[in-house]
Deep mutational scan, measured.
Amino acid sequence: LQAFIKTLTGKTFTVEMEPSDTIENLKAKIQDKEGIPPDQQRLIFAGKQLEDGRTLSDYNIQKESTLHLVL
């Protein structure tokens, strides 16, 4: 599935991932794409901060969901 990552500066980019991917995997993909170390990334979806060990499906993240990236 493709999801949108929106930063506080208003920049939006897309990442490809599977519902079974962990938040940790997602942070690694963001690092590959944007060069931001995972330990500096905080991802917010539906008002909740996402925990590394959980999966996208745990948070009911669907295709074309928008996640907010806070540094």
Rank of each mutant, 00 (worst) to 15 (best):
T55H: 06
E34C: 13
P19E: 10
E18W: 13
I5R: 00
Q2I: 15
D39V: 09
T12M: 11
L67K: 01
D39M: 09
S57G: 11
Q41S: 03
G47V: 02
P38F: 14
R42F: 12
D21C: 04
E24Q: 12
D58S: 14
K11V: 07
S65N: 10
T66Y: 08
T55K: 12
Q2P: 06
K27Q: 02
D52E: 08
T7F: 11
G53A: 10
K33C: 06
Q41R: 01
G10Q: 03
T22K: 08
D52Q: 05
E18R: 14
F13N: 00
K33E: 07
T55Q: 08
L56I: 12
K27T: 01
L26K: 00
F13W: 05
L50K: 00
L67H: 01
F45A: 03
K6L: 10
I5W: 02
L43Q: 00
P38Q: 13
M17T: 07
A46V: 05
F4T: 13
D21N: 06
G47C: 05
F45S: 03
I5L: 03
L8S: 15
S57V: 07
S57E: 10
L69A: 01
I36A: 03
Q2Y: 13
D58I: 02
K11W: 11
N25F: 12
F45W: 09
E51W: 04
F13H: 02
H68Q: 10
K29W: 06
P37L: 06
T12Y: 09
T14F: 10
Y59K: 01
V15E: 01
Q49V: 15
L8E: 15
L26D: 00
A46F: 09
N60F: 07
L43K: 01
L71W: 10
G10Y: 03
E24P: 02
F4W: 09
P37D: 07
V70W: 11
R42E: 07
L50S: 01
D21K: 03
L8D: 13
V70A: 07
R54T: 07
L50C: 02
D58Q: 06
R42A: 07
K29T: 05
T55Y: 08
Q62V: 13
E24S: 13
G35T: 02
Q62K: 12
K11G: 06
Y59Q: 03
L67S: 01
H68E: 12
